[in-house]
C-alpha cells in the first residue's frame, strides 16, 4: 500500500457532486452558507439553476430536501457534520428516514482533525446516531478517491444516505481503480494474527500499524469499513473467526460508532477480544490536526499497542471487553 499524496476527503465530495450533476439532471444541491468549506461551491458554479442557498438553517434545509426528494429530485445538503447530523436529528429521523426520502447529506469537518475551530465544530457522535436510523446509509470514506466514489454511489442509490468527510488533508492510497461497493468492506491487506478494522482517516493509520506489526512477525489483516451501514457482517465475522482478535479505529467517540457496530456483529457471530481506538468519551479542542490526533490517541501507535493487547487477551483466553481506561498507550 503506497502513499500517493495528501488531499482532504471534502474535495472528493465536491468533485463527486459535479460528476453527479453532469450525469443526472435531477440532482440538486442545497447550501447552508458554508458552501466553500464543504465544496458544494463547485456544483453551484457549474449548475447554478440546480443550487439553492437556504442560509444558516439546517433543520429547514434538511426538511426542504425531503420535500424535493418526494418530488422526484435527488437533493444533497451539506454542512458541517455537527449541524447537519445532530442539530437536525429529528428532521433526519422523521422527514428523511421514516419517509424513506431520497435525501443525501454531506457532513463535513468531521472529527477532531478540524483543528483550530475547537470542540463545538468537531463532531464525534454522528456515526452513532445515523447508524441507528432505519433506512439510512452511512458512509465514512478513507481518502479523496474513495470520497469521490462514495459520493457518486450514494447519489445513484435510492434512499436516504449520509457521507462523513473531513477538512484537513489526509493520506491518499486508493486509486480510481480500487474497488468500491456500498456495504462491502475492503480488505486492504490480508493477515491472520489480528484484524485492524478502521474507517476514515484511521484506515491509513491502521496500514502503518500493520507495517510495524509485520516487523515483529505479526500478520495483521487491515479492513476498511467505508460503509458503516449497511454493515458488512460477513467480512467482519470472517475476520473475527480467522484472526481471533480485533482492533477498531475511528475518529469518533469509542462508543456506538464503528467499534460498536463491530462489537454487535462479533458478539452475535464470533465473540473475540476487541480493543477500541477512538476518542474516549471526551470533547475535542483547539489545536493543529496532527497534535490533536496525538493528544486524543488516534495514531498508528495506539492501534499497534491495542493489537498487542487484543492478541494477548485472545492467547490468554480472556473474554469480555476491557475498560477503556485500561487501554495502554504506546510508549
Amino acid at each position: 500500500m503506497e502513499l500517493l499524496g495528501q488531499k482532504p476527503t471534502r474535495f472528493g465530495f465536491g468533485d463527486g457532486l459535479v460528476v453527479l450533476g453532469e450525469r443526472h439532471s435531477n440532482v440538486v444541491v442545497l447550501g447552508g452558507d458554508i458552501t466553500g468549506s464543504v465544496m458544494t461551491s463547485l456544483f453551484k458554479d457549474k449548475f447554478p439553476d440546480r443550487f439553492f442557498s437556504i442560509g444558516i438553517a439546517e433543520q429547514n434545509a434538511t426538511t426542504i430536501a425531503a420535500g424535493l426528494a418526494l418530488s422526484g429530485k435527488i437533493p444533497f445538503f451539506a454542512s458541517y457534520g455537527a449541524f447537519c447530523a445532530l442539530r437536525n436529528a429529528d428532521q433526519l429521523r422523521i422527514s428523511v428516514a421514516y419517509n424513506e426520502a431520497n435525501v443525501k447529506i454531506g457532513g463535513g469537518h468531521a472529527g477532531i482533525s478540524v483543528g483550530p475551530d475547537g470542540a463545538t465544530h468537531q463532531v464525534l457522535e454522528e456515526v452513532a446516531f445515523l447508524r441507528t436510523l432505519p433506512h439510512m446509509t452511512m458512509i465514512v470514506p478513507a481518502d479523496y478517491e474513495e470520497a469521490k466514489k462514495a459520493t457518486i454511489a450514494m447519489g445513484e442509490m435510492v434512499g436516504p444516505a449520509y457521507i462523513r468527510f473531513g477538512r484537513s488533508p489526509v493520506p491518499m492510497f486508493t486509486t480510481p481503480d480500487t474497488p468500491f461497493e456500498l456495504g462491502k468492506a475492503n480488505v486492504i491487506k490480508d493477515g491472520n494474527d489480528v484484524a485492524l478494522i478502521a474507517s476514515g482517516a484511521l484506515v491509513w493509520e491502521a496500514i502503518l500499524a500493520s507495517q510495524e506489526l509485520a516487523k515483529k512477525g505479526i500478520s495483521a489483516r487491515v479492513i476498511n469499513v467505508h460503509t458503516i451501514k449497511p454493515f458488512d457482517f460477513a467480512t467482519v465475522t470472517a475476520a473475527a473467526r480467522e484472526c481471533g482478535a480485533i482492533v477498531t479505529a475511528e475518529e469518533h467517540q469509542v462508543h456506538a460508532g464503528l467499534g460498536g457496530a463491530v462489537a454487535e456483529c462479533t458478539a452475535k457471530n464470533a465473540p473475540v477480544p476487541i480493543e477500541f481506538v477512538g476518542v474516549k468519551d471526551s470533547f475535542g479542542g483547539s489545536g493543529e490536526p496532527e497534535e490533536l490526533m496525538v493528544k486524543f490517541g488516534l495514531t498508528w501507535k495506539e492501534i499497534y499497542a491495542s493489537a498487542l493487547v487484543a492478541m494477548e487477551r485472545r492467547d490468554k483466553g480472556s473474554s469480555g471487553v476491557r475498560a477503556i481506561k485500561d487501554v495502554p498507550s504506546y510508549a
Binding site: 426538511t63 425531503a66 420535500g67 418526494l70 428532521q91 422523521i94
Partner: peptide, 17 residues
C-alpha cells in the same frame, strides 16, 4: 404525501415540494 407529526417539519417539506 408525507409522514408528519413532529411539529414544524411538514411546512418545510411543503416548501421543498
Amino acid at each position: 404525501e408525507t409522514s408528519s407529526g413532529s411539529l414544524g417539519q411538514g411546512i418545510s417539506i411543503a416548501v421543498g415540494m
